[in-house]
């Protein structure tokens, strides 16, 4: 994955992306944006404004459902994702879901390696051990689970499960990490841990995170997107947006007029 040509230093570029679940109705409408490497971008907006829909367009999740239509262009490291192999796109753009979803039949160890197993990549024992340890260390879970590698993933607490799911995505060394409200199902302490983790991960990864929580967005992100009724209303540096939003709707959202 390192050999991909990257001419313009954009890891992700959205050009007029629209998504509709029912013909004629757009859940996401003409969204264009450029995301730079090693940044955290927060996607904000009221419930139902299309954040999840947009995020899932980026790793071609919508293709699983025949009624969903995605139009526009999405470039991942300069390459149009729709002309790439879907499996490759998904390996490059890892996804963390709203609810932790470790594979229930697999051990913690196997959960981390699931991406390799599903791609039929044969690894030697020491390679596996190394990937598992690095991935779990990068989500600060190693010390907590290193003695229970063979236990099922569902044995962990919710916060640990979510970190396991992040480790599972990181194990494939994605270029981009898409996170859909990764802390919304977690308690405050676990939320804190995951937030710290996201902050750490920024060094090595590019992250797009959907969040409902404005203080979370303010703490974590370099850039913010504000979406409303499927449109990208405002996109810019988080500091700027939180102090001096350009659009009235952004301001209203941030001051809590609607949520």
């Amino acid at each position: 994955m390192e050999n991909s040509v990257n001419t313009n230093n954009h890891i992700l570029e959205l050009k007029d992306v629209s998504v509709s679940y029912t013909p004629g109705q757009y859940a996401v409408k003409d969204v264009s944006a450029i995301i730079k490497p090693n940044t955290v971008t927060a996607m904000m907006g009221p419930s139902g404004c299309g954040k999840t829909t947009l995020l899932r367009a980026i790793n071609r999740m919508h293709e699983l459902y025949p009624n969903i239509v995605t139009t526009g262009e999405i470039l991942l490291q300069g390459e149009n994702i729709f002309s790439m192999n879907a499996m490759k796109v998904r390996r490059m753009a890892g996804m963390v879901f709203q609810r932790p979803n470790p594979f229930p039949t697999m051990s913690i160890y196997d959960n981390v390696l699931a991406g390799y197993m599903l791609n039929n990549v044969g690894l030697k024992k020491h390679e596996k051990d190394e990937i598992v340890e690095t991935s779990l260390r990068s989500v600060a879970l190693w010390d907590e689970v290193k003695d229970s590698m063979t236990k099922k993933g569902s044995f962990l607490s919710g916060g640990q499960q979510q970190r396991l799911c992040i480790a599972r995505a990181l194990a494939l060394k994605p270029e981009l990490l898409l996170m859909d409200e990764p802390t919304s199902a977690l308690d405050p302490i676990s939320t804190n841990k995951v937030e710290e983790l996201i902050f750490e991960l920024k060094k090595d990864y590019t992250i797009v995170i959907v969040t409902h929580n404005m203080s979370q967005a303010a703490r974590l992100s370099d850039n913010s997107m504000f979406m409303y009724l499927g449109e990208l209303v405002e996109y810019g540096a988080t500091k700027q947006m939180f102090t001096k939003p350009n659009d009235k709707r952004t301001e209203e959202y941030l001051t809590g007029v609607f949520s």
């Binding site: 490759k88 390996r91 599903l118």
Partner: peptide
């Protein structure tokens, strides 16, 4: 849960 299948596919699995 449908997320199980989605999680697998999201890891690039066939």
């Amino acid at each position: 849960p449908v997320t199980l299948k989605e999680a697998g596919l999201a890891l690039g699995g066939s």
